[in-house]
Simulated assay, not measured.
Amino acid sequence: MAAGARASEPSRKVIGRSVVRPRQQVEETIKAAILSGELKSGEMLPSEAELARQFNVSRGTLREALRVLASQHLIYKVPGARGGTFVQSVDYSALGDVVTDSVDNLLALGSIRFDEVTHMRELLEVPSVRLAAEHRSADDLAKLHEIVDRQKAASVDDPSIPELDRQFHTLIARASQNRVLASFVAALHHASEPVHYLDLSPEVGRETVKQHQAIVRAIADQDPDAGERAIVEHLTYLRHHISAHRAK
């Protein structure tokens, strides 16, 4: 009978939740205010003394919470008399910053290899070009033409070449209209910096510009298949030259 009574008892309702530490409460409250838009991008937070008073916590607890939020790229500190703690811009570019920092750190630690980064970038750049061919705007196209024209006019020792190459590949990724893809392509391109690993001769410079022109032409024609062929040819060319340069 007792066993039957126990079997008929309703299941216990769970109404409790774990109590978070003061640091975690501060962190979660500020994070919620940022993500809800209550705290706007670029807005300066109250001083540490004022925040500690509002949350009724020690300055040490508050600083620990702010360090965690900074590591999540939600806030940043500006030193100096006119500085303070500001809300970081929270958009797809912030995702790229997080990925860039993470990949850079992993490369520095030796946890991942350079060739793994370049291979992943290549895998992402093919769909990036295909999508750009489908979704590019007239403004995207005008900017790509401008970059290629500047590359064509630059000498191989022009210090602007790495930045122009970064802009070229990043803009194609943005033209894909997939912001997550754009963030990853930009981050991985920054980490691998292919131009720095090329033995830049006038011949290599001319061939690279020629390949860029073929990519832009396919995007202009809104031809994803031609775009894929052009980017694969370009990436294959880069891979062979980078491998030869690193072998030296």
Rank of each mutant, 00 (worst) to 15 (best):
N56P: 04
V26C: 02
L35E: 14
A33R: 08
S128L: 02
A154M: 06
A108W: 02
L144H: 00
D139V: 15
F55T: 00
I15Q: 13
P79N: 03
I30Q: 06
S11H: 15
T118P: 08
Y92D: 09
I147Y: 12
I15E: 12
D225V: 01
M1R: 15
Q167S: 05
P162I: 07
R229F: 00
A70M: 08
E116N: 15
L66N: 03
Q167L: 03
P194V: 05
E28C: 10
H135N: 12
A214L: 11
R206P: 03
E38V: 06
P224D: 00
Q211K: 09
H119M: 12
H241K: 10
G37I: 05
V180D: 06
K248Q: 13
M44Q: 14
K248H: 09
I219T: 04
E50L: 14
N56V: 08
T170M: 05
S160N: 11
Q177L: 11
K143D: 13
P22K: 09
A138C: 07
P79C: 05
L35T: 10
S18I: 13
Y197I: 14
G4P: 07
I242W: 08
H245Y: 09
I75R: 06
I161N: 09
V78G: 05
A94N: 10
A52I: 07
S155L: 12
P202Y: 05
N56G: 08
G96I: 03
A81P: 14
E48H: 07
D104Y: 08
Y237L: 04
L171R: 11
V26S: 05
I75Q: 01
H245A: 10
F86Y: 02
H145R: 14
E116D: 14
V90M: 04
L164K: 07
I15P: 05
N178I: 10
V99T: 02
R121M: 12
L45F: 02
S41Q: 06
H190C: 07
D139W: 00
L107F: 02
G205M: 06
A132G: 00
Q167T: 01
R174T: 01
V87E: 08
D91A: 08
L144E: 01
I231C: 03
K31M: 12
R217F: 00
E207I: 02
I34F: 04
I172P: 06
G80N: 01
P159I: 02
V209A: 03
E163D: 15
V129R: 04
